[in-house]
Design a protein around this nucleic acid. Structure first.
Lengths: 122, 122
DNA sequence: GCCCTAAGTCACCAAAAGGTAACCGCTATG
DNA sequence: CATAGCGGTTACCTTTTGGTGACTTAGGGC
């Protein structure tokens, strides 16, 4: 059960949010939820991410047990990132969030336009 | 439908994520999903947020049509923030995410400890 | 008159995020 | 041999984020 009203600093969801609530981590989790993926492939799929940010986000996700890193001993060495069972669990509400975004993008766009007009008029 | 593998920069969910994927916005939406709330009350419930960040996040949420701002003509002037129907929709997967975090905090904690030990040993 | 609360705004500054580019070892390809 | 791809790491530098404290407008309580 979540305490209904308050999210204080010691609340465990705070520390998870701090690690998870950035666009890259969410995107990576989302992409990985569709299947294992190698580093550069992941980089291509999260368009615009830099190598550095990708590495950092992956390490963070790995540290939290949401993603696992498998070094395959092929040649040249390949690294495959996989979503863990725990990561899979998180990805369910996450996918819901993204499909919501996808479905309501026009509505959001209208809301933004209306808001911008109002504040410009002021 | 979401394209299954790729999130490119023009994808509508990208711009929503950019506006929503920070810890404060998610927390605020979460708190508001439990009922209307005034500015300072909201500030108390999102422990640690600064006045400035709260204002900024609220404006962003308002702009995206997820939250509405009602000025009540009481004395002294009160301002009440409410979640909109659209915000309510978003808050459903969001709540799922937070209850997941709450339920799995120990597991995440263990994963972190294991990871830190592994990397320290190296 | 003085101080408090509400709900901000504004200017300033420090810390952190994040991009760029170079470099690494290694392999495959032309 | 040169080049390109993989999977990074590191240094550097810029942008953004975000916190602090002062100030504001307006009413209420003592």
């Amino acid at each position: 059960m979540i305490p209904p009203f308050r999210l204080d600093q010691c609340c465990p969801s705070r520390s998870l949010l701090a690690d998870l609530a950035d666009k890259w981590s969410l995107m990576i989790l989302y992409v990985l939820s569709h299947g294992d993926c190698r580093f550069n492939e992941l980089k291509r799929r999260c368009e615009g991410i830099s190598q550095k940010s990708l590495t950092q986000s992956l390490r963070r996700l790995e540290r939290n047990g949401l993603v696992s890193r498998q070094v395959l001993d092929t040649s040249p060495v390949a690294v495959e990132y996989r979503i863990t069972p725990m990561g899979k669990d998180v990805s369910t509400p996450l996918k819901a969030l993204l499909s919501w975004a996808y479905a309501h993008s026009e509505e959001v766009e209208r809301a933004r336009a209306a808001f911008d007009q109002k504040t410009a008029a002021k």
